[in-house]
Write a protein that binds this DNA or RNA. Structure first.
Lengths: 230, 230
DNA sequence: ATGATGTAGATTGTCTACAATCACCGAGGG
DNA sequence: CCCTCGGTGATTGTAGACAATCTACATCAT
């Protein structure tokens, strides 16, 4: 059954669905997910489900141990630190690459994504705000057209989105502030590479501080959380 | 049959075998590879074979189009350029991260890998020389302990290894020169971050020049090479 | 009581058969 | 001569059943 979906392989679509389910909080970080359960959940067989899970594993959202089980990624404070330092490195690199090639298309796309972020914030939709913020930052990576850079960003983006979403749900903390990206957008459209690079460093530093305060409080349960059997 | 291998899933082992087969030249860049053919080649079923191929796809060595086929990655000059600029960015970043934490273990490992490279060069073993050179560069990434950085390096490494191996086979060009990494190792163990960063830029620039000269001569057949059916 | 040990359940890994999709090629009509 | 259209083969996608392995719990001996 379920043979009416077209133009894309089932595994890929399942990957998107599963990713959305994880990011929406249906499965929490550290929670175990089984192939069979997900297969019946989405009404498909284990084959495509496995394919989708493999995709999310490579993206970093799922972690599996052979013959034992699969669970949703649970980040440590060290992981968060690694992610943010990588973000600084890659985003500066990306802006260096495209700086001289910024055209009208780039400018309009950036302002559009910024507007989408503001709209999501105004609507009070946290999940959409997170998505919009990451889309905004993603533009420079996409503009580069460097496939390796883009896949690196995908891994970073997935981990950040997972963590933020869980963070917000668990603690009721609001999403990004309305003015949080004004400087970022302004300088990205401006004329000074160095000021943009400084802004990236500042931006990430603020984000890291905001993030680290929480993760350290729930540390120490990365490997041994097995409650909630059913 | 073939049920006596232990401690690691078949798909992972098959991935290593297939990677080795590709890098050894059994399958050339742009050549089509089919699941069934590889499955009988390695004496397993399509399931594990698929798993292994999926792994190599994420690594970047294989490219697949749904319902149609899978072929070995064929790099364009733009890809090579992207790879080398990423290498500069990431390797400088990696050295910045570990610079103050370089300990005795790092120093001995670096000299050991350099010695291994020299031995491979002296033996005239091109494949092993390439592997040793990439292992040498890989140490700094491994020392960082940053999982995202490491996976980015894996993608770069796989693509470079594939390209160099095919390059050398097709044109009989020798591997890395014996003295090519003397400065790199010396400065990596030295005291000046800035000189090391300059060395990385120079090192990559030389590598890119050596590489680009060839790839541009065979451009223009990325999408349409379908000969050699059997 | 404590430790080792065997046993049961669950989960992933693997295999075989079948279906959906696509590229190629040749025939027929314009 | 060129374009359209259908057939044919190949390749990947999907399904369900079976085997290998791991974790946890109960049992038994010390």
């Amino acid at each position: 059954m379920t043979g009416m979906i077209k133009r894309e392989t089932m595994g890929a679509q399942l990957g998107s669905l599963l990713r959305a389910a994880i990011l929406s909080g249906e499965f929490q970080p550290g929670e175990a997910v089984t192939e069979t359960a997900l297969a019946v959940r989405f009404g498909v067989s284990r084959g495509p489900m496995r394919e989708a899970m493999r995709h999310l594993m490579d993206e970093g959202l799922l972690v599996t141990v052979p013959y034992t089980g699969t669970r949703v990624l649970q980040l440590t404070s060290a992981d968060i630190d690694d992610i943010y330092s990588m973000r600084i490195c890659l985003e500066i690199f990306a802006f260096e690459q495209i700086w001289e090639r910024r055209d009208e298309a780039f400018r309009t796309a950036l302002t559009q994504r910024h507007a989408a972020l503001l709209e999501a914030i105004d609507d009070g939709d946290d999940i959409r705000s997170i998505d919009a913020e990451l889309d905004l930052h993603g533009l420079v990576y996409e503009t580069c057209g460097n496939s390796i850079l883009l896949s690196s960003w995908s891994g970073i983006r997935a981990r950040l989105q997972l963590y933020w979403a869980a963070h917000h749900r668990a603690h009721g903390i609001t999403g990004p502030k309305r003015e949080s990206h004004d400087d970022y957008v302004r300088l990205a459209l401006g004329d000074s590479r160095e000021r943009m690079k400084d802004e990236i460093r500042d931006h990430m530093s603020r984000g890291l501080d905001k993030t680290m305060a929480f993760v350290s409080s729930v540390e120490g349960q990365k490997a041994g959380s097995n409650r909630r059997k059913k």
